[in-house]
Computed example of a mutant assay.
Amino acid sequence: MSFKIVFEPRSIFDIQDAVDYYDSRQIGLGEYFYETLEKHIEVIIKSPFFQVKYKDYHGLPIKKFLL
């Protein structure tokens, strides 16, 4: 069975908003958030069978990240 990562168009804006917000709190924190997000995406690609959140969508929440 083949899986793919799908980003809703609005999610790209939400991710950018989060990066901007974290950078406004501390320089470099936005980049660190984005790197953390990328690592989580890689985990989902390698092992997509996480708890079903919405119908056929699977998710891996980012609980916390620290510098």
Rank of each mutant, 00 (worst) to 15 (best):
F13M: 06
Q26A: 07
L66P: 00
I62K: 02
I41V: 14
K64G: 01
G59P: 01
S24A: 06
F65I: 13
G59M: 03
K64W: 03
T36S: 08
R25H: 08
Y32T: 07
E38K: 11
Y22T: 08
A18C: 05
S24C: 06
G59T: 08
A18L: 09
Y21A: 03
I15V: 13
K46R: 11
A18Y: 04
V6R: 15
D14Q: 12
M1K: 05
D23K: 12
P48I: 09
E42M: 15
L66V: 14
I45K: 14
K63D: 02
D14K: 10
F7P: 00
D56S: 00
Y21K: 11
K4N: 06
Q26D: 09
F13R: 00
K55F: 10
H40F: 07
G30K: 08
D14N: 13
E31Q: 01
Y54V: 06
D14F: 14
I5C: 08
F65A: 08
S11M: 08
V43H: 05
K4A: 09
F3Y: 15
M1H: 05
I5L: 15
R25D: 01
Q16R: 10
M1A: 06
F33I: 04
F65E: 14
F50I: 03
Y32E: 10
H58W: 09
P61M: 08
I44Q: 09
L60F: 11
E8G: 07
Y32Q: 04
F7T: 06
I5H: 14
Q16V: 13
E42L: 14
R25C: 11
Q16H: 05
E35F: 10
F3S: 13
S11C: 07
F49Y: 11
I27Q: 10
I41K: 07
H58C: 12
T36M: 08
L29G: 04
F13K: 02
E35A: 03
I41E: 11
R25N: 07
P9I: 04
S47M: 05
D23L: 10
V19W: 10
F49K: 09
M1I: 11
G30Y: 12
L60R: 15
K46S: 05
D23E: 13
F65Y: 15
A18G: 01
I15R: 09
Q26L: 02
Y32M: 10
V6M: 12
E8L: 09
P61L: 08
L60V: 07
H58P: 02
